[in-house]
């Protein structure tokens, strides 16, 4: 009986943590429009997916910021969040290069090295599409910037 109560308490604690994490994540998304970026093309919150083919896709959220010298940010805010290790923008042709660890749907970590191009640059909901690789694994990714303000 004591074990059941303890297990129940632990489960409630985990559920509470998940609820708090989810709430914090949603709160972050809800406040994203207030930080709407018109200027540096990569700044803001982006959503899309990546995968090795059309059927095997993984949800992807990137939150990026520009400090005047470098892009920083994170992927998939929440329990499986990872940090962007390297992100560059080539404004001569509006292409991007990104390097970061990501967890796929099976929980395996991929060292995501992607290259893509920005489409519809002048729009708040501009997009990036391109290809990624991790050794022999490779595929495509797409991202669309979240609108707002």
């Amino acid at each position: 009986m004591k074990n059941i109560v303890m297990k129940s308490t632990i489960m409630k604690s985990i559920a509470m943590k998940r609820a708090i994490t989810t709430f914090a994540f949603l709160l972050g998304l809800a406040s994203a429009p207030a930080f709407s970026q018109q200027a540096y093309p990569l700044s803001g919150t982006w959503q899309g997916d990546w995968g090795v083919n059309d059927k095997d896709r993984n949800f992807l959220t990137l939150v990026m910021d520009w400090d005047g010298k470098a892009v920083s940010g994170s992927a998939n805010p929440g329990p499986d969040s990872t940090q962007i290790e390297h992100m560059t923008l080539n404004s001569a042709n509006w292409t991007v290069a990104i390097d970061m660890p990501l967890k796929d749907a099976k929980g395996q970590t991929v060292q995501f090295k992607g290259e893509g191009a920005i489409a519809d640059l002048g729009s708040q909901t501009r997009s990036i599409s391109g290809t990624w690789s991790d050794g022999a694994r490779k595929g495509t990714f797409t991202l669309t910037r979240q609108s707002g303000g």
């Binding site: 930080f35 709407s36 018109q38 200027a39 540096y40 700044s43 707002g148 303000g149």
Partner: peptide, 16 residues
């Protein structure tokens, strides 16, 4: 914020 153009002509600005 960065939701506007701060000059005619489209000069960019950031939140800084």
């Amino acid at each position: 914020n960065e939701g506007f153009w701060f000059s005619n002509g489209g000069l960019p600005h950031t939140k800084q």
